[in-house]
Design a protein around this nucleic acid. Structure first.
Lengths: 143, 143
DNA sequence: TTTCTTGCAAACACTTTGCATGCGG
DNA sequence: CCGCATGCAAAGTGTTTGCAAGAAA
């Protein structure tokens, strides 16, 4: 989604287009690492030093309402934001918290077969797979 | 897991066996609806009126360490506790928050094929599928 | 001009911690 | 008896809200 499409999308729902919003949206929508609100805040602050964390949260809510990002809650009471709506696996390192998407045609195909098995009509899904990342598995086999 | 196995398991890790712990553990391990800490607290309070929420949280941590329950964090900053370690789908109603497990041999089989695709060695996984429950889908098609 | 958005600070909800008392081993 | 567990209250963390000033439409 480019900037123009984003602006159109915002306006169509009656949301105003502000530079802060554009910056936050661009950042999340192009992110690959499922940033936290704090990470987004720190990043956008480089361009808008006066920005508030509240603005980040409000914009994130807005993107959720538009269906452009999914909020992934975690047990450490933090959330990460995922702009990928297509069925995919969130590969998560339980030690350092790094997340990346595993996305492949076969994964999607098999997941659709699982859904068919259940007979349910999903609004959305979340597939998390916990495994130590390369870095962490080398550092301390068992802490 | 029966009470005797639970006691043995606790002792083997050096945890003390108290009536509160037994009550909390039994409740969670036999639950089918992935209760929240608050729900567990309210339930156990019927038997132990003086019990503290802190004790519930501490016991939940203990069960996590023993690998007997998985904590499922959600974006509404609440957590639910799942005693089912086998790969299964958490079917979640986004409107009322009800959760139940969908567990079937074929689901497990297909999920293992997905894992094989990725080439990863998962420590654990979490499969969430959001869909309106029967009750909610009848009440208000679109709120 | 009207309404929505911003930044700040205070309020919130859930969870964790510190401490004195009490029970398990 | 020693040490961990309990209950309570206070502290902590991430998120949301209320409000006055400012910007978008």
């Amino acid at each position: 989604m480019n900037e123009q499409q984003l602006i159109t999308r915002l306006r169509s729902k009656g949301y105003k287009v502000t530079p802060q919003r554009i910056a936050i949206c661009q950042l999340i929508l192009s992110s690959k690492d499922h940033p936290s609100a704090e990470q987004i805040y720190q990043e956008v602050k480089k361009t808008y030093p006066a920005i508030s964390l509240a603005t980040v949260y409000i914009t994130l809510d807005l993107l959720k309402k538009l269906g452009l990002v999914q909020e992934l809650g975690f047990s450490d009471q933090s959330s990460r934001y995922d702009p990928n709506n297509s069925p995919h696996i969130n590969v998560i390192c339980p030690r350092c918290g790094k997340i990346y998407d595993y996305e492949a045609p076969n994964v999607k195909k098999l997941w659709y077969r699982i859904i068919a098995e259940t007979g349910l009509k999903p609004l959305r899904q979340r597939l998390d797979l916990y495994t130590l990342c390369n870095k962490c598995s080398q550092e301390n086999p068992t802490p």
